[in-house]
Amino acid sequence: MRLPCPICGDRDRREFYYQGAAVALSRPAPDADAAAWEDYVHLRENQPGDLDELWSHDAGCGAWLVVTRNTVTHAVSGAKLASEATR
């Protein structure tokens, strides 16, 4: 499997660290209710199909990425820097 790092180019999956669904882009306010925090920390939709995910290019440039990956086919349809992702 290969992921398109926007900085380094296409790279082998072994260079990346996987975090999970890109929910971290929308961290609730500290005083948000328990349900919002529960959602944020523990609950994931786990729908088959395209999913925005957070990957860190650990062994490469060190950038955190938002990668759009199809969880059924593993097709990757895009990747952008997490620092530039809309949130």
């Binding site: 971290a24 961290r27 997490a82 530039e84």
Partner: peptide
């Protein structure tokens, strides 16, 4: 190290 980068890049770019 990864966690601090996460804060700097994802939470507070």
């Amino acid at each position: 190290m990864r966690h601090l980068e996460f804060i700097a890049q994802v939470h507070h770019p």
